[in-house]
Amino acid sequence: MTDTTSTSVAAPQAPGAILSKPLSIRDTVLAQFKDTEAGLQAMADKYRNVVYDVTTTKGMNEAKAARAELRDDGRLAITRAEKKVKADVAELKEVMGTEVERLVAIVKPVEDSIDAQIKVEEKRKLEEKADRERKEANRVAAHRTNIEQLRAYAVQAEGQPLETINGAIEKLLEMTFGEEWEEFAQQAQAERDNTVVGLRALVQREEQRIENEKLRAELAALKASAAPPPEPAPAPQNIIAQQAQAAIESVADGEEAEPFEVDDWGAMEALQEAPAPAHAPIAAPAPAASTGKAYGGGSWSRAAAAPAAATPAEASVQDDGTRVSLSQLKERIAPLSVDAAGLETLGFKHVSAGGTSKLYRACDLPAIRDAMVKHLNSINF
């Protein structure tokens, strides 16, 4: 078989080079009619402005002859020629269509062959472009997925053991961001560094939580092994009842009772419910000095408040009314830390609350320090 593939291209012919003589049916037909124009003009001029005496036989015959010439050799000759041309054109149309198809069949297959070559190449280029775009989209999506995975480690590590989190930190720090990351290397490294910071903060919080749990358990064990506390002081309710009875008796004897000062409900609850800490003996109640709590007018009242029982440190430390918050106490013992539950385990409960803060007596700070030191000294490492 002869190889018909060739890169040589024939020089294109100028438009209309094949049909060197324009074929214009219009010009051909009109030229035929144009040739008759002079004869028609001479005929019209021959009879123009002629007046016939049609009243006579001769005149009538001459007029009829003139009319017949103008009709047959003029008007009808032209219209007959028109009909003949139209018939020829209709026949030519049919013949011309068949001839055109024959001539087109000579070049159309060659044109179709070249068109097929062009379309194959255009399709190949479009497919290559689509494949490049698909690969580029997959490449970018893969990098972004990896970066999202780096960012998600901090969330996925929540609730995991410390060993797992520390192992993840080590693996992240071992990662390098070379040429395989392409233009995403800098962004990936930044996400890795942010994730490591978040994981380290998570480790620090978890270690602090474990240490607090351990300290709380040790304090609970120490409290369980401590000696039982001494007998509690008389209940404040009994003192209040005695003071109220004394006030009633003084009124009955005609004595002038001191004016009542109404306590708020919080002060009443603190007086009745404050437990005796275990770190120091409870002092005996001080004698009531013509003051007491009485029930007057349907609400708790007092004349002049006197403590019914000494607080834990009153035996050796005088309370001047100064209070410190839990956060202030933590600042003093930093970098160690303790919470309200731990202080209560050591025997120190807050005496009041200032808004959302728990307040402790400032005079108890030395005793709190000594209790913490004693606990630390009791731990066997």
Score class of each variant (00 low, 15 high):
V338E: 03
L70F: 07
I25Y: 15
K34M: 05
E174M: 15
I106V: 11
G59W: 13
A66M: 06
R124D: 02
D320I: 06
N377F: 04
A252S: 12
S6V: 07
A157P: 03
Q189I: 06
T311L: 15
E179T: 07
A81C: 02
D45P: 01
Q208M: 13
W300I: 09
S250T: 03
A142W: 03
A137N: 13
E136R: 14
S337T: 13
R369D: 04
D35T: 13
L76A: 13
Y153V: 14
R139L: 11
Q189M: 08
P234D: 14
T36Q: 13
A38T: 07
D27V: 03
E94A: 12
G178F: 06
K358I: 01
G292N: 04
A14P: 02
Q187P: 08
T145M: 12
P236K: 02
I333Q: 11
R192C: 10
E269N: 13
P22M: 09
N61R: 15
L359Q: 05
A68T: 08
L173N: 15
E273F: 14
F33S: 09
I248V: 11
D53V: 10
A90F: 03
A247V: 02
E314Y: 09
D320E: 09
A274P: 04
A288V: 06
S225C: 08
V373M: 11
M60K: 14
R134A: 15
A152H: 12
D131F: 07
E314G: 09
E94N: 09
K84Y: 12
I169P: 03
P15I: 04
A154E: 00
H279P: 02
H279V: 12
T7W: 03
L219A: 05
P12T: 00
R132V: 03
T28G: 12
M96F: 00
E127S: 07
V140I: 15
A284W: 07
A90V: 08
P287H: 10
S378C: 01
A286H: 09
Q328A: 14
T356C: 00
M175Y: 01
R369M: 10
K349H: 13
A63E: 09
A224V: 02
F348P: 08
L271E: 05
N138P: 03
A157G: 00
D72S: 10
L70M: 05
P236F: 01
M175K: 15
S6M: 07
D264W: 00
T311H: 08
L336N: 11
G178V: 14
V100P: 04
A168I: 09
G97H: 03
E101H: 02
E255V: 15
A190D: 11
E331N: 10
L103S: 05
A235M: 00
Q156Y: 02
E179C: 01
G198R: 03
T145F: 00
A137F: 06
A11T: 01
A154M: 10
G39H: 11
A17W: 04
G347Y: 09
V29E: 02
S24Q: 02
E127Q: 06
R67G: 01
P22A: 08
M268N: 02
E273S: 14
I147A: 05
K125C: 01
E121Q: 14
K293I: 10
E91R: 00
E258H: 03
I239L: 03
A44P: 04
P109H: 02
Q41R: 14
A188G: 08
M1H: 12
H375M: 05
V9A: 05
L40D: 01
A247C: 11
P287Y: 10
L92W: 15
I18P: 08
A44V: 15
K171R: 15
V110H: 10
A371Q: 02
Q41A: 15
